[in-house]
Amino acid sequence: MINVLKPGLQTTVQDDGRVGYYETGMPPSGAVDQYSYAVANMLAGNKKGAAVLEITYMGPALEFQEDAVIAITGGVIPPQINEAPVPMWETLEVKKGDVLTFDFVKQGARAYLAAAGGIDVPVIMDSRSTYTLCGIGGFDGRALQEGDVLSIGNMQEKEVKPGTRVTGEYIPEFSANHEIRVIIGLCSYRLTEESKQRFLDIEWTVTPEANRVGYRLKGERLDFVPREQPFGAGSNPSNVVDLGYPIGSIQVPDGIEPIALLNDAVTGGGYAPVATIISTDLNRIGQAKTNEKIKFISVTLEEALEARQQNNRKLAEVKQMMQSS
C-alpha cells in the first residue's frame, strides 16, 4: 500500500490507454509521454500496460506501507526518498515507511512513477487510465487526493536489480523551446497559404490552459480562406461540419489561439483542424510547460514513420538491457 500524504498538483493513474471507444466519444487517456511511461515500467520489471502515476508540475508526497521497487522517469521533477535526492531513470528500492517527495520541476512537465507490480485500480473498458472529465477509470475517476491509499498490483514479470539504469540517448532532454513535428492536413485547405506558412514560422507560447485535454497556444491570428459556409457548418470561417478530431490534431478556433489535443481529447467538434502532431512527438508536447515555446515542424508521413521506428527501436533496446541485467 502507498499512502498519499500530499497529492501534488494533478497526479493520476495512467497506462497505455483505452483504445477502441473513440466512436462513442471516449478518448484513450493514458500517459501523455508514452516513451517515459514505457521505460518506467521496464525499469520496474512490469508487463507492458501496467498502470503508473503520472505526476504533473508538482509532485506528491507518498509514504510506502511496504517494501517496494520503483522507477521514476519523464520530465525532471527531482525525487527524494526521506529527503535525500535519488536518481531518475533508475530502478530504486524503497523500504516500508519511506517517504517519497519531489523538488520543483526543473525540465519538462510530467514525471512517471512505476512500482513493481503496477498501480492496482479497477480495469474500466480495458484500461486503468483516468479520464477525469467524466470521472472514469483510475483512482475513483479523479486525480489523487490527500489520504488516498493506493494498492500495488501483480503485473511484475521480472525482477530488475536495484541500481539498473538507462543512460545517454535513452533519456530524452526537454528544453524550454520545443520543436514538435506535425503532418499538415485534415482541413488545412481552410487556411490561406500565407497563414499555413505562418503557422510553421510562429513561435507559439504555451498558455496556462494546458492540460491533458489540450494545450492552448498563443501567438498571432491566422486567417481562413473566405467562403460561403457550407450547410451545417456554422457561421465562423473556422467552423466546419462537426467531424472527428485525431489525437494530436491542432485546431484554430476563430483563427486565434490554436489548441493541440492530447490524450483526454474532445473526440470531435466543429473547428477546422489543420495539422496533427506525430505520435512520437506527442510524448514531447506533453512535457512542455506553461510559458514555454513551441515551434511546429512540417514533416511527411515517411519522416513521421521513421521517427516512430526510431522510438520503437529505442524502447526495444531498453527492454533488451533489462532482460540482460
Binding site: 461540419v241 467531424l243 489525437i247 490534431s249 505520435s279 513521421a304 516512430r308
Partner: peptide
C-alpha cells in the same frame, strides 16, 4: 493523414 495513426476522410464539406 492525421499524424501517423489516423486517416481522416472528408466526404463532403
Amino acid at each position: 493523414y492525421g499524424g501517423d495513426e489516423f486517416i481522416f476522410v472528408e466526404l463532403s464539406e
